[in-house]
Structures are given as structure tokens and as C-alpha cells.
Amino acid sequence: MKITPQHISPEMKKTQKTEVNGTITATSQPAAEKVANSTQTDASRQRMLTWFARVGISPSMLSPDPKKQKHALERRKQILETQKASNLQAVLNIALNVSINEQTSDNLDPDWFFAFSTMAEEIYSPPMQELWGKIFAVEVARPGSFSLRTLQLLKTLTHRDAKVFNKAVNIASRKSNDTVPRILVGYHKRKGLLSFLRKPIPEQINLASVGLSYPDLLSLQEMKLIYASEIESAEYSEGQQVTWRCVNENITLTCKAPGVALVYYKFTSVGSELYKLVTKSTNETYLQEIKQVLSEVFNIS
């Protein structure tokens, strides 16, 4: 039987393909796919329009009429100024609800405050506004806690950057009476004459396995929140003790043998200032792994 076009169902016609010079091409796009693409395009267009509307811009904003053009530009200026005032109000409301026990009679530096307000008015993300509100509350209670250099760096951080920093904070430790956090990753032991006869043991943990990937580390280094390379402590003598506090847990290390040094990533001064503000939660996986590695050369309690 000769097959004519009327013998082909509508569904088959939509997916019919033609071979020309060995190359198969579709003669038409499925209707369902066209509808899906159209819906996706409309949704993307709507998101674009919504974002630009927040800064007072629309596709047909500017008119050839000078009066209408002036009105549109004034309206845009008003939208931007209103948004900046709203940002500052959000930061203030957060600061008013922060409880700070330690107070001082020292006055806030006016230069610091006006620099702070100029930067804070351009913080639009609620999570970042919360961070800026905490900074202001702490600075009022203890002037000098946060440098302008810290604020300038903080202004460049996004909410995503802050989430990466939070990962680092959750695995950071501080020694007693030390304000600088460090991320302990393992140890280095001075090699003895018979060390080649012993079974190799892991000397460092893989931070990626506890949630802090190598790209995260690079990002933190580029933001100048931690130093760019690992650092070794001074060597511990046999029996020497040191206590670290990781979030809410104290870890006391007693060295089993001489010639052992801890290996860690150290927070910068800016990173140390921001560390005080971040809400912390214990990373149990990290604690288990770092204890397991350090137990080779330290007694842990």
C-alpha cells in the first residue's frame, strides 16, 4: 500500500525527520516543547522586569517628552533613595534587638559611623543586613571592635560568601586566651631514624570530607579571611598540654612524644573580627576526624 500524508497521524507529523546528504534533521519542533520554551522565556522575562523595577527601570521608561523623562528619572531617584533608607532601617531594627552584655563609656567614632551608614545603605540581602546590624550593636557597646577595613571587605561579600565563611567558622578552634581562630587540619612530626619501618599514618584530614571544599578554601583566601597557606605551630615537647575550644567543645591535647607540631589555617585579622559575629554550630564529622588523626601523637581529653 502506498503511504500518503493522510495516513500519517498528527503526532507522527510533528516528529517527522528528513535525511539530506546523510544528515538527519527535524522538520518541525514538537508543540509541547515549544510551549515549555515559551513558558520558560516568559518566566525569565518577568524576573528581569521585576529586578530592574526595584531600581526604577522599565523597558519604556524614557519618553521623548522632556517633562515625562524628567518625571521618570525623579521617580527612579526616589525609588533608590527609599530602598537605601529601608536598608538602613532594617540594619537599625536588627541592632536594637541584639543583646550585648559588656558596655563602655567610650563614644562611637563619628567617622566610623558615617562610613558605616554609607556602606550599610547598600546592603540589600536580609542575611547580610543581620550581620551589619550585629556589627553596629557590638561597635556601640565596644567601640574599636571593627575596623573600617573590615567593613570595606564585608561590603564586597555576598550571602553565598557568608555561607562559605560560616562553614570555616564551624570547624575553627581557638586556644585559651587567644582571639585568633585556626582550622586544625593535622600535625607534622619530625622524622626519626626508624620512621621508615612504621606503617604510614594520615597526618592531615581532608577538609572537603567535612564540608569545606578546596574551592571554598581558595575563596576564603581570596577574600583575605584566612591566610593563603598552611601554618605549623612550634614543636611540642613530650607531656606538653594545650587546650583548644571548637565551637562549644574543649579539646585538651597532651603530646605523646617530642618533635610534634600542629598544622592549621589561620584566620586573618579581618576574619577574626567577623568570626565573633557568626552564629556557630558544631561540625561533628570534623571533630571526629581531627581527633582520630591527632590521637596518633596526642592523648585527647
Results as ranks from 00 to 15, higher is better:
I135N: 07
I135G: 10
E139K: 06
E139L: 03
E139A: 04
V140Y: 05
R142V: 01
R142M: 11
P143H: 03
G144R: 04
F146G: 02
T150H: 04
T150E: 02
T150M: 14
Q152H: 06
Q152I: 12
L154T: 04
L154G: 07
K155A: 14
T156D: 13
T156F: 03
L157P: 07
L157C: 14
T158L: 08
H159W: 08
H159M: 08
H159T: 13
R160L: 09
D161G: 03
D161L: 06
D161V: 08
D161E: 00
A162D: 13
A162L: 15
K163H: 09
K163C: 00
V164S: 02
F165I: 02
K167S: 01
V169H: 10
V169L: 08
I171T: 04
S173R: 09
S173Y: 00
S173V: 08
S176I: 12
N177I: 11
N177R: 09
T179E: 05
T179K: 15
V180Y: 07
P181S: 11
R182M: 12
I183Q: 00
L184H: 04
L184D: 09
V185Y: 03
G186T: 01
Y187D: 01
H188L: 07
R190Q: 14
K191P: 02
S195F: 06
F196T: 08
F196V: 05
L197Y: 11
K199G: 05
P200N: 01
I201L: 13
I201F: 00
P202N: 13
E203P: 02
E203C: 05
Q204G: 05
I205E: 07
N206L: 03
N206E: 12
N206H: 12
L207P: 07
L207D: 01
L207A: 06
S209I: 00
S209L: 06
L212K: 04
L212M: 04
Y214C: 00
Y214M: 04
D216F: 05
L217V: 10
L217A: 09
L217Q: 03
L218E: 13
S219N: 14
S219E: 12
L220Y: 11
L220P: 10
M223W: 02
M223F: 03
K224Q: 15
K224M: 09
I226D: 11
Y227T: 09
Y227A: 07
S229I: 07
E230C: 05
I231K: 15
S233R: 05
A234F: 02
E235W: 01
Y236Q: 10
Y236M: 10
G239W: 05
G239L: 04
Q240A: 15
T243N: 10
C246H: 04
N250S: 12
N250T: 12
N250H: 09
T252Y: 00
L253G: 07
L253C: 02
T254Y: 01
C255F: 03
A257W: 10
A257L: 09
A257S: 14
P258C: 05
G259H: 06
G259L: 08
L262E: 08
L262D: 08
L262T: 10
Y265E: 08
Y265K: 06
K266N: 09
F267E: 12
F267V: 04
T268H: 13
S272Q: 12
S272H: 02
Y275S: 06
K276N: 14
K276H: 07
K276V: 10
K276P: 08
L277H: 01
L277V: 06
V278H: 01
T279N: 13
N283A: 10
